[in-house]
Design a binder for these strands. Structure first.
Length: 602
DNA sequence: AAAAAAC
């Protein structure tokens, strides 16, 4: 009986030699010339395995629990050999044809409307000193290159297609941890490359692993679940994951609210390995019994602190603890959060098993890539001041296109009225916020990304995680009351090692964040206006919620606190602190490639 | 106080 894809491969090759017209060929071998014959009986778990062979979750470290018991009831496999629905290839007739029909997710990458200015190569130096801290039991050592991690040829090829040259700090540490099968609590911000950090190990694990067939048709049994707080973020993770999984045979499906559910249901019925979802829609699908979590082996929660802020905790706990998802230890869980407050610590305790803690220093604010400006602007002068800024940068556009400007406001109403006002005054603006329909939201985002509408007015729906290349300028028209939101907002520019500009309109209404703002700017080596320092000194109620006590990280491993001591001496093993990439000789300049090379910063 | 999210 095949126990892994590797075994399946040799079995398939033997079969191919004997019966060239009707052999099963594992998906990742199918670009081999000799293996292009149509499979007669595609099976996800292996070649024509009998139902007796489908033994539970099968992992070596999982035996003994009810989750690994023999399953005799699986019929309709991922390969789509039997049953209606539930399979992969009911529509396309076979793996190969399915693969041919897989849209090329890289197709639009060359259609960029923007021309890179010269000398815009990635500023890797800016990341050299990003501090990284790990702690936990037997932490796998970090890697320095993608080559060291063998993710398989198909994934390696996708890494090249993505033009990733070297892993980011969070990837260097998180990928080996995840590949070792360990649970992970990572404090890292968007922009740190974490999407790839959790996608690569999941894809690799699904390719290598052996899984039972889905037990029922018309119900989706994903092997991996990725939860994220906003619809747009889910879309973005889905788009990226499809690139990483291109031609691996691993199928990625996204489900989120605001969009017609029927199309999502059809996609799910065609088979799904990795499901990316927002919590609300997923709960809906679970209650309709169209998705089952009983085969989940990988769970990733992105922007966990944001999800809790948004009141998702009940839904998340329902999904993770009250449906049919395997418990911690059986599944592998990765929890990503920009900060590590009590509530997240609680989730970590409940969702993770003997996890490794990983903290990566702040990206957006701690580098010099983003020039931060604060200007004193009275409430009534904000619009005309914004107009001045927009006029001033009109000349900066290339090829008749204006540089992209993202304007953050506090309220949905404010977003509507500012968009309207800009348009009335001849500025090509659009807006995105939670009261717009999903269609409007996606249209606004596309129009902005393409440069057709180079001004986007947004609420915090767009503050976190969204990766919009080429945003030259972020304007905090209204300064958020939470300095973390400010950090996330300005992080929409200065992406992928490019420089960016962030301007904030400050007045009396913002005095409560004056201190935090001044400190943050100082930490990022920005010029702090004297008047802001005076505000900061005046409202010196420091030590507020967002003071981090000089910690450059979003949080620390609370298990190391003396108050969290369960009497297990040295159980959590050593703590490693590594600053930057270590030996400078480790990275030849040649590795960075020429101009236009992008890194794996997401 | 506002933002986000299922129908």
């Amino acid at each position: 009986m095949p126990t892994s894809w590797a075994d399946s491969i040799s079995a398939a090759e033997n079969l191919a030699a004997a019966r060239p017209k009707s052999s099963y060929v594992p998906p990742h071998l199918r670009n081999r010339p000799a293996s292009t014959d149509p499979p007669a009986q595609a099976s996800y778990a292996g070649p024509a395995a009998s139902s007796q062979d489908q033994s539970g979750y099968g992992g070596p470290n999982i035996g003994g629990s009810r989750w690994s018991g023999p399953r005799n009831d699986f019929r309709s496999g991922y390969g789509g050999g039997g049953g209606r629905g539930g399979g992969w290839n009911n529509r396309t007739g076979g793996w190969d044809r399915g693969r041919e029909r897989e849209a090329n997710p890289f197709a639009n990458d060359d259609a960029e409307p923007f021309v890179e200015p010269e000398n815009s190569g990635i500023n890797f130096d800016a990341y050299e000193d990003i501090p990284v801290e790990t702690s936990g039991d037997n932490v796998p050592p970090p890697v320095n290159t993608f080559v060291e991690i063998d993710l398989g040829e198909a994934v390696n090829q996708n890494i090249r297609r993505c033009k990733y040259v070297k892993p980011t700090p969070v990837q260097r540490h998180a990928i080996p941890i995840a590949l070792a099968g360990r649970d992970l609590m990572a404090c890292a911000q968007t922009g740190s490359g974490k999407t790839a950090a959790f996608c690569f190990p999941i894809i690799s694990g699904i390719m290598r692993g052996q899984f039972p067939r889905p037990p029922r048709p018309r119900v989706a049994f994903p092997l991996a679940l990725i939860l994220s707080p906003t619809r747009e973020l889910s879309c973005q993770i889905h788009d990226e994951a499809k690139k990483f999984a291109y031609q691996t045979g691993v199928r990625v499906v996204v489900a989120y609210g605001g969009a017609p559910i029927n199309q999502q249901l059809r996609e799910l019925e065609r088979g799904v390995h990795i499901l990316v979802a927002t919590p609300g829609r997923l709960v809906d699908l679970l209650e309709r019994a169209r998705v089952s979590l009983q085969m989940i082996r990988y769970l990733a929660l992105d922007e966990a602190d944001r999800m809790l802020d948004m009141g998702f905790e009940p839904q998340i706990r329902k999904i993770v603890q009250q449906m049919d998802m395997p418990p911690p230890g059986v599944r592998q869980t990765m929890l990503f959060s920009a900060t590590f407050p009590k509530e997240i610590q609680g989730l970590a305790l409940d969702f993770l098993s003997n996890y490794i803690f990983l903290a990566v220093g702040r990206v957006g604010s701690s580098t010099d890539l983003i020039v931060q400006r604060v200007e004193y602007v009275q409430e009534n002068d904000k619009r005309s001041h914004l107009m001045d800024l927009l006029h001033a940068q009109r000349e900066n556009g290339a090829h008749g296109k204006q540089a992209l400007t993202l304007v953050f406001v506090e309220t949905k109403k404010g977003a509507d009225s500012l968009e309207h006002w800009l348009c009335m005054n001849g500025f090509p603006a659009t807006a995105i916020h939670g009261d717009r329909t999903q269609q409007e939201r996606e249209h606004a985002l596309r129009s902005f990304k393409s440069g057709n509408t180079p001004i986007l007015v947004a609420t915090d729906v767009a503050a976190r995680g969204l990766d919009i290349p080429h945003v030259a300028h972020v304007v905090n028209f209204d300064i958020p009351n939470d300095i973390d939101d400010y950090v996330h907002r300005i992080g929409r520019t200065g992406r992928a090692g490019k420089t960016g500009l962030a301007t904030a309109f400050f007045n009396e209404n913002n005095s409560s964040v004056a201190r935090a703002l001044a400190d943050l700017m100082q930490e990022a080596n920005q010029e702090v206006p004297a008047w802001l320092s005076r505000y900061a000194a005046r409202s010196s109620h420091g030590g507020g919620k967002n003071r981090r006590g000089g910690n450059r990280f979003g949080g620390r491993d609370f298990r190391k606190d003396s108050s969290f001591n369960r009497g297990v001496t040295d159980y959590y093993g050593g703590s490693n602190m590594s600053s930057g990439y270590g030996a400078p000789g480790g990275y030849g300049a040649a590795a960075y490639g020429g101009a236009g090379v992008t890194s794996a910063w997401d």
